[in-house]
Design a protein around this nucleic acid. Structure first.
Lengths: 112, 112
DNA sequence: GTTGTCACCTAGGTTGACTAGGTATAGCGT
DNA sequence: ACGCTATACCTAGTCAACCTAGGTGACAAC
Protein backbone atom coordinates (compact mmCIF):
# COMPACT_ATOMS: atom_id res chain seq x y z
CA UNK A 1 0.00 0.00 0.00
CA UNK A 2 1.28 3.44 -0.87
CA UNK A 3 2.11 4.91 2.51
CA UNK A 4 1.61 8.60 1.83
CA UNK A 5 -2.13 8.14 2.06
CA UNK A 6 -1.62 7.49 5.77
CA UNK A 7 -0.92 11.14 6.27
CA UNK A 8 -2.80 12.40 9.27
CA UNK A 9 -3.95 8.95 10.33
CA UNK A 10 -0.72 7.59 11.73
CA UNK A 11 -1.35 8.96 15.21
CA UNK A 12 -4.60 7.04 15.47
CA UNK A 13 -2.92 3.81 14.40
CA UNK A 14 -0.18 4.23 17.00
CA UNK A 15 -2.57 5.19 19.78
CA UNK A 16 -4.83 2.24 18.94
CA UNK A 17 -1.92 -0.18 19.21
CA UNK A 18 -0.32 1.21 22.36
CA UNK A 19 -3.79 1.31 23.89
CA UNK A 20 -3.77 -2.51 23.79
CA UNK A 21 -0.81 -2.76 26.13
CA UNK A 22 2.75 -1.46 26.35
CA UNK A 23 4.73 -1.72 23.13
CA UNK A 24 8.25 -0.65 22.32
CA UNK A 25 8.89 1.07 19.01
CA UNK A 26 10.17 -1.88 17.10
CA UNK A 27 7.27 -3.99 18.34
CA UNK A 28 4.82 -1.35 17.16
CA UNK A 29 6.19 -1.77 13.65
CA UNK A 30 5.78 -5.54 13.87
CA UNK A 31 2.31 -5.24 15.31
CA UNK A 32 1.21 -2.93 12.51
CA UNK A 33 2.55 -5.43 10.01
CA UNK A 34 0.85 -8.29 11.83
CA UNK A 35 -2.58 -6.67 12.14
CA UNK A 36 -2.58 -5.77 8.45
CA UNK A 37 -0.92 -8.88 7.02
CA UNK A 38 1.96 -6.77 5.85
CA UNK A 39 -0.17 -4.14 4.12
CA UNK A 40 1.11 -1.45 6.47
CA UNK A 41 4.86 -1.81 6.89
CA UNK A 42 6.37 1.47 8.01
CA UNK A 43 10.04 2.33 8.35
CA UNK A 44 11.61 3.20 11.69
CA UNK A 45 12.19 6.73 10.46
CA UNK A 46 8.42 7.13 10.41
CA UNK A 47 7.52 5.36 13.65
CA UNK A 48 10.16 6.62 16.07
CA UNK A 49 9.67 10.34 15.44
CA UNK A 50 5.89 9.82 15.59
CA UNK A 51 6.14 8.11 18.98
CA UNK A 52 8.37 10.92 20.24
CA UNK A 53 5.83 13.45 19.05
CA UNK A 54 3.00 11.63 20.83
CA UNK A 55 5.04 11.46 24.00
CA UNK A 56 5.90 15.16 23.84
CA UNK A 57 2.17 15.80 23.40
CA UNK A 58 1.51 13.87 26.62
CA UNK A 59 -0.50 11.12 24.93
CA UNK A 60 2.10 8.43 25.64
CA UNK A 61 4.72 7.87 28.30
CA UNK A 62 7.81 5.76 27.93
CA UNK A 63 10.24 3.85 30.09
CA UNK A 64 13.53 2.14 29.32
CA UNK A 65 14.18 -1.50 29.99
CA UNK A 66 16.73 -4.08 28.94
CA UNK A 67 15.80 -7.42 27.41
CA UNK A 68 18.46 -9.87 26.19
CA UNK A 69 21.09 -7.18 26.37
CA UNK A 70 19.13 -4.82 24.17
CA UNK A 71 17.74 -1.47 25.29
CA UNK A 72 14.05 -0.97 24.76
CA UNK A 73 11.86 2.07 25.11
CA UNK A 74 8.37 0.92 26.03
CA UNK A 75 5.39 3.17 25.50
CA UNK A 76 2.20 3.24 27.52
CA UNK A 77 -0.90 5.26 26.74
CA UNK A 78 -1.84 8.06 29.13
CA UNK A 79 -5.27 9.21 30.14
CA UNK A 80 -5.22 12.13 27.67
CA UNK A 81 -3.96 9.61 25.15
CA UNK A 82 -7.05 7.48 25.62
CA UNK A 83 -9.22 10.51 25.18
CA UNK A 84 -7.34 11.46 22.03
CA UNK A 85 -7.75 7.92 20.71
CA UNK A 86 -11.51 8.13 21.19
CA UNK A 87 -11.63 11.47 19.39
CA UNK A 88 -9.46 10.32 16.55
CA UNK A 89 -11.54 7.20 16.10
CA UNK A 90 -14.59 9.40 15.79
CA UNK A 91 -12.77 11.66 13.37
CA UNK A 92 -11.71 8.70 11.29
CA UNK A 93 -15.24 7.41 11.23
CA UNK A 94 -16.59 10.74 10.00
CA UNK A 95 -13.84 11.05 7.47
CA UNK A 96 -14.37 7.54 6.06
CA UNK A 97 -18.10 7.99 5.72
CA UNK A 98 -17.64 11.39 4.13
CA UNK A 99 -15.22 10.13 1.50
CA UNK A 100 -17.61 7.29 0.82
CA UNK A 101 -20.40 9.76 0.18
CA UNK A 102 -18.29 11.65 -2.33
CA UNK A 103 -16.94 8.70 -4.27
CA UNK A 104 -20.14 6.69 -4.08
CA UNK A 105 -20.03 2.90 -4.15
CA UNK A 106 -19.34 1.74 -0.59
CA UNK A 107 -15.89 0.27 -0.33
CA UNK A 108 -16.82 -2.13 2.43
CA UNK A 109 -19.80 -4.42 2.86
CA UNK A 110 -22.81 -2.74 4.40
CA UNK A 111 -24.59 -6.06 4.96
CA UNK A 112 -23.40 -8.76 7.31
CA UNK B 1 -13.28 18.46 9.37
CA UNK B 2 -9.56 18.98 9.64
CA UNK B 3 -8.43 18.97 6.05
CA UNK B 4 -4.89 17.65 6.44
CA UNK B 5 -6.23 14.14 6.88
CA UNK B 6 -7.33 14.32 3.24
CA UNK B 7 -3.73 14.06 2.21
CA UNK B 8 -3.34 11.55 -0.57
CA UNK B 9 -7.09 11.15 -1.06
CA UNK B 10 -7.85 14.43 -2.78
CA UNK B 11 -7.16 13.05 -6.25
CA UNK B 12 -9.78 10.37 -5.79
CA UNK B 13 -12.36 12.91 -4.66
CA UNK B 14 -11.69 15.11 -7.67
CA UNK B 15 -11.71 12.24 -10.14
CA UNK B 16 -14.94 10.90 -8.65
CA UNK B 17 -16.63 14.27 -9.10
CA UNK B 18 -15.39 15.07 -12.59
CA UNK B 19 -16.30 11.52 -13.58
CA UNK B 20 -19.95 12.50 -13.06
CA UNK B 21 -19.84 15.11 -15.77
CA UNK B 22 -17.81 18.19 -16.69
CA UNK B 23 -17.15 20.55 -13.80
CA UNK B 24 -15.21 23.76 -13.67
CA UNK B 25 -12.93 24.35 -10.71
CA UNK B 26 -15.22 26.55 -8.71
CA UNK B 27 -18.10 24.12 -9.26
CA UNK B 28 -15.93 21.27 -7.99
CA UNK B 29 -15.52 23.12 -4.71
CA UNK B 30 -19.28 23.65 -4.46
CA UNK B 31 -19.99 20.04 -5.37
CA UNK B 32 -17.60 18.77 -2.70
CA UNK B 33 -19.35 20.97 -0.17
CA UNK B 34 -22.75 19.84 -1.40
CA UNK B 35 -22.03 16.10 -1.33
CA UNK B 36 -20.65 16.34 2.20
CA UNK B 37 -23.06 18.88 3.66
CA UNK B 38 -20.19 21.25 4.15
CA UNK B 39 -17.90 18.77 5.88
CA UNK B 40 -15.35 19.05 3.10
CA UNK B 41 -14.89 22.69 2.15
CA UNK B 42 -11.55 23.19 0.46
CA UNK B 43 -9.93 26.48 -0.52
CA UNK B 44 -9.22 27.34 -4.14
CA UNK B 45 -5.49 27.17 -3.43
CA UNK B 46 -5.97 23.47 -2.84
CA UNK B 47 -8.33 22.65 -5.68
CA UNK B 48 -6.86 24.56 -8.59
CA UNK B 49 -3.30 23.24 -8.31
CA UNK B 50 -4.69 19.73 -7.80
CA UNK B 51 -6.77 19.97 -11.00
CA UNK B 52 -3.70 21.26 -12.86
CA UNK B 53 -1.70 18.33 -11.55
CA UNK B 54 -4.35 15.86 -12.70
CA UNK B 55 -4.48 17.48 -16.11
CA UNK B 56 -0.70 17.40 -16.46
CA UNK B 57 -0.90 13.71 -15.55
CA UNK B 58 -3.34 13.17 -18.40
CA UNK B 59 -6.23 12.14 -16.14
CA UNK B 60 -8.32 15.20 -16.95
CA UNK B 61 -8.62 17.54 -19.91
CA UNK B 62 -9.90 21.08 -19.80
CA UNK B 63 -11.47 23.60 -22.09
CA UNK B 64 -12.27 27.26 -21.65
CA UNK B 65 -15.71 28.68 -22.05
CA UNK B 66 -17.48 31.90 -21.18
CA UNK B 67 -20.71 32.01 -19.22
CA UNK B 68 -22.31 35.32 -18.27
CA UNK B 69 -19.14 37.16 -19.13
CA UNK B 70 -17.05 34.99 -16.85
CA UNK B 71 -14.25 32.70 -18.01
CA UNK B 72 -14.54 29.11 -16.95
CA UNK B 73 -12.15 26.22 -17.28
CA UNK B 74 -14.18 23.03 -17.50
CA UNK B 75 -12.62 19.68 -16.76
CA UNK B 76 -13.57 16.34 -18.26
CA UNK B 77 -12.23 12.97 -17.25
CA UNK B 78 -10.09 11.08 -19.76
CA UNK B 79 -9.91 7.37 -20.35
CA UNK B 80 -6.73 7.01 -18.23
CA UNK B 81 -8.52 9.15 -15.68
CA UNK B 82 -11.36 6.66 -15.46
CA UNK B 83 -8.88 3.86 -15.03
CA UNK B 84 -7.08 5.83 -12.32
CA UNK B 85 -10.41 6.47 -10.58
CA UNK B 86 -11.14 2.75 -10.49
CA UNK B 87 -7.69 2.02 -9.08
CA UNK B 88 -7.91 4.75 -6.50
CA UNK B 89 -11.32 3.59 -5.39
CA UNK B 90 -9.88 0.15 -4.86
CA UNK B 91 -6.91 1.64 -3.02
CA UNK B 92 -9.22 3.64 -0.81
CA UNK B 93 -11.27 0.57 -0.07
CA UNK B 94 -8.21 -1.40 0.93
CA UNK B 95 -6.89 1.47 2.99
CA UNK B 96 -10.17 1.99 4.84
CA UNK B 97 -10.56 -1.68 5.68
CA UNK B 98 -6.94 -1.89 6.76
CA UNK B 99 -7.20 1.05 9.13
CA UNK B 100 -10.37 -0.47 10.50
CA UNK B 101 -8.53 -3.70 11.23
CA UNK B 102 -5.85 -1.85 13.15
CA UNK B 103 -8.07 0.41 15.20
CA UNK B 104 -10.79 -2.18 15.73
CA UNK B 105 -14.40 -1.11 16.21
CA UNK B 106 -15.88 -0.56 12.75
CA UNK B 107 -16.44 3.10 12.13
CA UNK B 108 -19.41 2.58 9.86
CA UNK B 109 -22.49 0.41 10.20
CA UNK B 110 -21.99 -3.18 9.06
CA UNK B 111 -25.72 -3.91 9.22
CA UNK B 112 -28.34 -2.23 7.08
C1' DG C 1 -19.21 52.75 -5.44
C1' DT C 2 -18.78 49.26 -2.27
C1' DT C 3 -19.70 44.75 -1.04
C1' DG C 4 -20.53 39.95 -2.28
C1' DT C 5 -20.40 36.21 -5.43
C1' DC C 6 -18.40 33.98 -9.22
C1' DA C 7 -14.09 32.42 -11.30
C1' DC C 8 -9.52 32.06 -12.18
C1' DC C 9 -4.26 32.03 -10.77
C1' DT C 10 0.48 31.15 -8.16
C1' DA C 11 4.58 31.89 -4.95
C1' DG C 12 5.89 30.53 -0.79
C1' DG C 13 5.09 28.41 3.84
C1' DT C 14 3.93 24.46 6.70
C1' DT C 15 3.50 19.80 7.88
C1' DG C 16 4.27 15.01 8.07
C1' DA C 17 6.21 10.88 6.36
C1' DC C 18 10.34 9.08 4.28
C1' DT C 19 15.41 8.48 3.03
C1' DA C 20 19.60 7.60 4.48
C1' DG C 21 22.59 7.59 7.31
C1' DG C 22 24.35 6.38 12.19
C1' DT C 23 25.01 3.38 16.99
C1' DA C 24 24.89 -1.10 19.40
C1' DT C 25 23.85 -6.15 20.87
C1' DA C 26 22.76 -11.14 19.80
C1' DG C 27 22.86 -15.14 17.03
C1' DC C 28 23.85 -17.81 13.09
C1' DG C 29 26.67 -19.75 9.53
C1' DT C 30 31.23 -20.60 7.52
C1' DA D 1 37.35 -14.60 13.34
C1' DC D 2 34.16 -12.56 10.11
C1' DG D 3 30.19 -11.30 7.93
C1' DC D 4 25.29 -11.23 7.76
C1' DT D 5 20.70 -10.89 9.66
C1' DA D 6 17.62 -9.52 13.16
C1' DT D 7 16.64 -6.71 17.03
C1' DA D 8 16.47 -2.00 18.74
C1' DC D 9 17.29 2.65 19.01
C1' DC D 10 18.22 7.60 16.92
C1' DT D 11 18.13 12.10 13.83
C1' DA D 12 19.15 15.49 9.97
C1' DG D 13 17.60 16.59 5.82
C1' DT D 14 14.44 15.77 1.77
C1' DC D 15 10.10 15.62 -0.56
C1' DA D 16 5.20 15.84 -1.57
C1' DA D 17 0.95 17.79 -0.81
C1' DC D 18 -2.02 20.91 1.04
C1' DC D 19 -2.83 25.70 2.66
C1' DT D 20 -2.11 30.75 3.18
C1' DA D 21 -2.25 34.84 1.22
C1' DG D 22 -2.04 37.39 -2.01
C1' DG D 23 -3.39 38.83 -6.91
C1' DT D 24 -6.79 39.61 -11.42
C1' DG D 25 -11.36 40.46 -13.34
C1' DA D 26 -16.67 40.42 -14.32
C1' DC D 27 -21.37 40.75 -12.64
C1' DA D 28 -25.27 41.90 -9.42
C1' DA D 29 -27.38 44.27 -5.67
C1' DC D 30 -27.84 47.98 -2.69
Amino acid sequence: MRADILKGHLDLLLLAIVEDGPFHGYAVIEELRRRTDGAIDLPEGTIYPALHRLERAGLLTSSWSEVNGRRRRSYTITSPGKKAAREKRREWSTFALTVQRVVGAPAWPTMA
